[in-house]
Structure formats: structure tokens, C-alpha cells
Amino acid sequence: MDSFVLVGDAREVSTLTTSGFSDVASSNAALRGFLHGLPGVDKVGADGRAAMLGTRSIKTTAKRQAIDLAISMVDLTTLEGADTPGKVRAMCAKAVHPDPSNPDVPRVAAVCVYPDLVAEAVRAVGSSGVKVASVATAFPSGRSSLEVKVTDTELAVAAGADEVDMVIDRGAFLAGDYLKVFEEIVAIKAACGDAHLKVILETGELATYDNVRRASWLAMLAGGDFIKTSTGKVQPAATLPVTLVMLEAVRDFLDSTGRKVGVKPAGGIRTTKDAIKMLVLVKETAGDGWLDPDWFRLGASSVLNDLLMQRQKQDTGRYSGPDYFTLD
């Protein structure tokens, strides 16, 4: 491989296999051969590049633009056992008007809830344009039969979910049973109908960046509309280098197949600084085409208050405090 390729560039692969994407999933051996044929990720290089991009200084008007863009990309999430219809309604109200005292603040991209609360969320967001996403497929562990996972998805879609966040079977993936993972994604995609499918890789359990790249390609080949880092239930969640590897994967996938896939880092994004670092990473890795809520999302809940506080600091010139925003 060329020595100047820093992080390992998967674009080279496409030339070898341009004709062959329809065949890659013909057998587990073929799929394995393809995924293991992806160039390895230079871990030190990826960590270094992500850290370097994290040092960019974004100030004043650029920061203001970044804050508003980040707000419009947030998937406001509540995935607790203790979620109640009331909590979901409160969260939806916040999604539509993040800062009730300031109508200039854009609405967030979507709310993300468990399947049984989808109907409540759909009612609550109404015609505001905020999408409703539902986790499905035995979230967060994904340990159930395909029938249960498909039914789980169908129920969420029937309840009105615009987007479905599925988890892959990490056990099968790590055991090398790639075809099982592939076929599961295909089956869930079919069950989704018109709903967008986000595939959660749970990168915190995949151990290596090579596996993150393989899982990304697997999810995209199987038809996922988005690839998402984590459930938020496992640490580490959405780190910068992992997001970098996934952004490279969607960029390379677009180059070689012409199909564009979105990226959603989720979990562990808590501050405005974290969010802006993500945006810098998107701009520098995948390009401007992904700087859009249709193609990049931030799965988070606490980051929204911090974004609003920073926005208010810019408006009023004084630091704000958590007393002036909702507790959630």
C-alpha cells in the first residue's frame, strides 16, 4: 500500500470489486473475504488525526452557525426503563421548541424512544417536522430471534416511527458469522418499509477499528440508510476516531457504489465542544455533503442544554446556568 495513505484508504478496494457488490453476500466465505480484504485502519494515525482535528478553534459567528447546525442535528433521546408517556411528551415539546423563550432556535432533527412509546411521541410532535425514531430489534443487546426482531420493528413502524434504530448481533459479528448479521439487516430493512433504517454497530464492543470499518461496510452493503456508533449503554461510545473511521466508510461507499449513507455518533457527546469537534470531523472527512441533518445526526440528550447555554451566552454576553433550562 502507498506509504502516504495515512489512515488506510478503502477507496482502493472498490476498483477490485466494482463489479462484485452483488456477489459479496452470496456466502459467508465471500462476505468474509470481502470484509477482511478491506485495508486495515492505522490506529495511531486515526487517533492522531481525530485528536488533531479536535484542536480546531471555532469562534464567534462560525461557532454560532455550528451551534445552530448541531441543534438541528440532534436526535433527542430517552431510552430508560423508567420512561413514561409524560416524560416522552415533555421531551417532544423540547424537541419542537428547544428554547421556549427564543423562537429563533431551530428544532431538533428527531426524537428517539422505545417502540412502545412511539405512538405517544408521534402524537406529541404532530406536524412540527420533528421525526420520530424508535430503537428496535431487542435493543440494546440484540439478543433475540429474528422473528422477535422483525416483529419489534414492524410494531414500531406501525405505530408511526419514521426511523428505526436497529442493533446488530455483535456476538455473531465477533464470531465471524457475517452472513447472519447481513441477512438480519436485510430482513429488518424489509420490515421497515418506508422508514429509514439506522444500523447501530455498538463500536464499544467491536474491539478494533478494523472491525468498525468491516461492520460499517457490512451494514451499508445490507441496505442501512444510516450507520450509528452506539446504543449509549456501553462505554466507550461515540469517540472521535471511531466516528472518523465510519465517516471514511460512508465516503468510500458513496464513491464506489453511488449510494449515500448517513452517520450518527451516539452516546458520550455532552458538551458543545464535543459536538463542534464532530462537525469539524464531518467537514474534513466526508465533506460538506454530510453537514446536513439528513446525513449526520448526534444521538444525545444532555448536549442540547449545553448548546442552548452557549447560544444564550452569545446572545446575552453573560454565562448562563443549568437553572434556566429543563431538567431531563
Binding site: 454576553g317 453573560r318 454565562y319 448562563s320 446556568g321 443549568p322 437553572d323 434556566y324
Partner: peptide
């Protein structure tokens, strides 16, 4: 002055 204006102080 920043502390005096800070809403969380």
C-alpha cells in the same frame, strides 16, 4: 465582572 454577570452564581 464575568462572575458578577454569571447566571449560575
Amino acid at each position: 465582572p464575568w462572575l458578577a454577570g454569571h447566571m449560575d452564581v
